[in-house]
Design a protein around this nucleic acid. Structure first.
Lengths: 363, 363
DNA sequence: ACAGGCTCTGTTATCGATAACAGAAACAGC
DNA sequence: GCTGTTTCTGTTATCGATAACAGAGCCTGT
């Protein structure tokens, strides 16, 4: 009696082995393209596998080989083109080497992130990528003790858990404000979310506040657009509130291009000329920034590059080429558009440098 | 000697069992909240697990229990808000029951889809969701033989592999054209991709052609915007070509809202009034449709609802509540906007009906 | 007092692959 | 011809959990 009766479940390697007249070890080797299998034998095995409709069971292989080929990744939202781009960069960089990205989203909620990370770690990923530098204490502990490479992205945390591929959101906005102040803008507002939920948004506002204080300007023009993430619609509503309350504002810096575009449409509805009457800037270099009329002045944080670099880093850490955690600094770039005019200046930093480091502190 | 030396890898249930003074079977039961564990014992076990930093190994559990709790899903692109919404609906519907969505994207490429499906099936998902009704022959075979529920979405294929949650893209556009023709439009163009790659886009064009033929109108105003998916930028470029070649066009129906918005911006750049000089319609009810100036006349295919229904269906199929494949018909709804004016009409279909059926054919 | 049921825990075998080791056959070099 | 190497294949144990079965201890009803 064979172990497997007809219809008792999908065929296993043992079934293929029997059909091909070899041992299941030989089947295993043949399917993995291990050099040490005779060409004829391999052909017979592949043929048998095809005939039986054999499908490799990655679960069993993972258990025995202690190798899942999973890379876990969490993003705040799957509906955001910036994060989607990062996932794309990550996936494309990893798929070529046979890794499968195991994706989850947190809805910008640290408690949800904790649950998600816990779930994902049970799958025994080879590495894990998370967004942002702020996490619950338990999340930090889980990640630190997981014994796998950890990469934080889209941020430069003060105390990284492991590696980092990111940039300072505060610095990026501060640099933008510097440019606008140099161009003569004074009455500048910031339009963002009101909660501490979106930590990157909060960091951007902090950069705004810091810059305004530095230049001795009034930083009280803060418009909250509701619970993050701020959509186009909420950006428009917040802009309406701003125009009603502080109509003499010269420039509105928005937490993202989506909010900025919403703000732009509100101006269009009111017949206000952008940038003549009021200027608008965004963040993220979303598609809309390059096509809207006028185009949006924004900051490109190179989302896809973040993913690509994270993938590269993980591959290095896994194959031993890279040892120890790395901080990869992404240099966001100001992209002047028609919504907030800036005089030409010599190019902002273009290179995205990678620096190795021992102690965990941002370069 | 204990089996596990210090530092010989992460702790297992056996380690927790030893620390708590019970058998590993009791640990297994305690962690799964199996009723039959004494409260005190369970507390001791959870405590030991926490102390040791134990992380459950889902791989081992999956192998033994023949239950991975994975649901595989493929979408054409992760950078598309419509598909992201479907994933959101799917994930939210499944996460509550402990399932983890295993997501992959195909880049609108059927060969890539085949590779992806093959990869995903190796993970032994409990069910699989794919986008669209067109697949390579091998993909169809793989799915049909996988022995798990298969759900095709965003389409109503002639020969479903298993279940379906979708709608006819051709019918939706045809109905839209009917409305516009009734409103007096005659010189109508269709702006879409030129390849057969995006099958949903091709179906929409087919619906356009069918409707125009039905009404005895000239359907030669077809503008190709390059390789799908058509972005905002390509929509603008295609609109430019259209305005140059066929400046007397009254209405442009675009394969998606993104293309439609790009087209709208091109008109704005040229100073053409929309909808007065030329009207524009889109597809998808993306965020941009509700906020642009003017808002876009579009069709809402209820992307999130598609995901939610797919999740519901899968849960039913897995727990036996639902038997056999189902066809769930989504009824896309026309959303009149400012970019292409329509006289009021009594509401289009609002209900999204579900119909059981035996033979695989669309209702 | 005893059968029968309930609560709780343990023992053993197993899921389907691969690591580690072993060995047969063919070939090369001297 | 003999040893050493290369090529190819097989045997056995194992990854870490859970299904299936078994049974001890205690309660309940008659």
């Amino acid at each position: 009696m064979t172990r497997r009766a007809r219809g008792a479940g999908p065929p296993t390697m043992a079934d293929v082995a029997r059909a091909a007249g070899v041992s299941s070890m030989t089947v295993s080797r043949a399917l993995r393209r291990d050099a040490a299998v005779n060409e004829e034998t391999r052909a017979a095995i592949l043929d048998a596998a095809e005939r039986l409709g054999y499908v490799f069971d990655a679960t069993a292989a993972s258990l025995r080989a202690r190798r899942t080929d999973f890379i876990a990744a969490t993003i705040p939202s799957i509906n955001n083109a910036n994060f989607a781009d990062t996932v794309r960069g990550l996936t494309d960089g990893l798929a070529a080497r046979g890794y499968q990205v195991l994706l989850g989203y947190t809805n910008y909620d640290m408690a949800e992130e904790e649950r998600l990370v816990e779930q994902l770690l049970r799958r025994r990923p080879e590495a894990i990528v998370v967004t942002g530098g702020r996490h619950t204490a338990r999340t930090r502990t889980l990640l630190a003790k997981a014994g796998i490479p950890v990469v934080e992205t889209w941020d430069l945390p003060d105390e990284p858990i492991g590696s980092v591929v990111g940039f300072s959101n505060a610095d990026a906005v501060e640099a933008m404000v510097d440019r606008f102040v140099a161009a003569g803008f004074r009455r500048i507002a910031f339009l963002g979310g009101d909660a501490a939920r979106d930590t990157r948004g909060t960091d951007r506002r902090r950069g705004f506040l810091r810059a305004m204080a530095k230049h001795g300007l009034d930083a009280a023009r803060l418009i909250a657009g509701g619970t993050p993430p701020i959509s186009m619609r909420e950006g428009a509503a917040a802009m309406a509130a701003l125009l009603d309350r502080l109509p003499d504002t010269e420039l509105v810096i928005c937490v993202s291009d989506l909010a900025a575009f919403g703000a732009l449409t509100e101006c269009q509805r009111r017949g206000l000329a952008v940038p003549e009457t009021i200027a608008i800037a965004g963040f993220g270099d979303y598609d809309i920034a390059g096509i809207s009329v006028p185009t949006l002045t924004t900051i490109d944080p190179f989302p896809r590059e973040i993913g690509r670099r994270a993938a590269e880093l993980i591959l290095g850490l896994l194959d031993g080429t890279v040892t120890g955690p790395r901080i990869v600094a992404i240099m966001p770039q100001l992209r002047p558009g028609g919504s907030a005019l800036l005089p030409d200046a010599d190019g902002a930093g273009r290179a995205n440098a990678e620096t190795a480091q021992k102690s965990p502190s941002a370069p």
